[in-house]
Amino acid sequence: MSRDRTRRDADRIDVRKTYKLYVGGAFPRSESARSYEVTDARGGFLANASLASRKDGRDAVVAARKAFGSWSTRTPYNRGQVVYRIAEVLESRRDQLEREVREATGVNAGGARAEVDQAVDRLVWYAGWADKLAQVVGNANPVAGPYFNLSSPEPTGVVAVMAPASPLLGLVSVVAPVITTGNTCVVVASQPHPLPAITLAEVMATADLPGGVVNVLTGHQGEIAPWLASHLDVDGLDLTGVDDADLARDLEVAAADNLKRVRRPGPEDLAADPRLDRMTRFVETKTVWHPVGT
């Protein structure tokens, strides 16, 4: 049923979308020219998604690093507006995403609607944090001496994110906090449900999010993740979507090479209201001292 969704006229043949990667603001195919079959909840063919390689991962890290400089130094107000804009554009494309979520997971229409609602609301929630986090987690420190002393959060850098299976809400829940605080990221989308991730990438690409801030790879987590975990130009690693405990441990071990900040996987109700921890995990506290004198 799904492939014929745009049919108005039985005689017209659909123009199907090719689901590609999202790297540096562009939508390339995997450099490996590989793809894998994505099916719906009942096993029916949905699309061939790109099967990203380690080299795609490398390219994505380069793009994320390149984008970090300007994204991290934008004003928090501006970042908040961009994240809010993602919510706006997502809302405007909700029909498509509801359908993709339904197809991917088999939830009913109400369930898909709820997931999109929550995803949009979550983006709005994080958008508002962009210019508030520093006020909540920063500090003026009353040191015992004639010094001005201020601590404030700064983005960690390039974060590799292993997205959870929840194809839209899960993805938004792990990406939004990372970029709201000024990081850029390389996301490995849910292996079985990659299509909403690419559609979300299209949303972000048209929401004034600069290319490279979010890069989306589809494919096998076990193939790409080790390269990202050991990549010396990646500063953080979010293992939320890694269900295999042995793989999670191996990735954490690899991440130790350059002392990445690691968020371990754990039980989490993504539908619940988020806390600050997804933002604070990938920020660094910088403390500036200056003498006070005439």
Binding site: G145, P146, Y147, P291, V292, G293, T294
Partner: peptide, 8 residues
């Protein structure tokens, strides 16, 4: 310049 805190 002379930094007060430093010189003191």
């Amino acid at each position: 310049g002379v930094d007060q805190v430093g010189v003191e």
